[in-house]
């Protein structure tokens, strides 16, 4: 086999795997998509830009945790740290591929962190935007 052929052949073999890695978060996004449509009839899709703004925004529900960046750092490709000193793996899917793949875990943390930071539950649109942003990095 010539090297060029070998490369092409490998790429073909790898394609399903690569597609899968991108799609690992799809079921959860789809779930939030349906919920967002139910919440708001005018909903027209998630946006990474809105997700980024939401991630960086400052809130005043709690002086200890004013923002998602308090623990996840402003650069989601970097590891963060909890208030109690424990490292948190990067939120960017490119760095931590199994992010947003376990629906129960995702809901548990949205419930907690939205309550801690914003003082209310997040909407389905905010959640979907957030994940879309993290998957885009």
């Amino acid at each position: 086999m010539k090297p060029r052929h070998f490369l092409a052949f490998s790429l073909i073999l790898l394609m399903p795997v690569m597609a899968y890695a991108g799609a690992a978060q799809k079921p959860i996004i789809d779930g939030y998509m349906a919920a967002a449509k139910a919440e708001n009839a005018a909903f027209s899709g998630f946006s990474a830009d809105r997700g980024k703004a939401f991630f960086l925004a400052k809130h005043d529900a709690s002086p200890e945790t004013p923002s998602c960046t308090t623990c996840h750092t402003a650069d989601p490709t970097k590891a963060g740290q909890t208030r109690a000193g424990k490292d948190v793996a990067p939120m960017a899917v490119s760095k931590t591929p199994d992010r947003f793949t376990d629906a129960e875990k995702v809901e548990k943390w949205f419930t907690r962190n939205c309550q801690s930071v914003i003082g209310r539950a997040c909407t389905a649109q905010e959640k979907g935007d957030f994940i879309t942003f993290m998957a885009s990095l």
């Binding site: 200890e64 419930t111 907690r112 962190n113 309550q115």
Partner: peptide
């Protein structure tokens, strides 16, 4: 757990 030392740590 919902008011865990200044943080929400609630669980099912």
């Amino acid at each position: 757990l919902d008011q865990h030392f200044g943080e929400d740590a609630s669980l099912p």
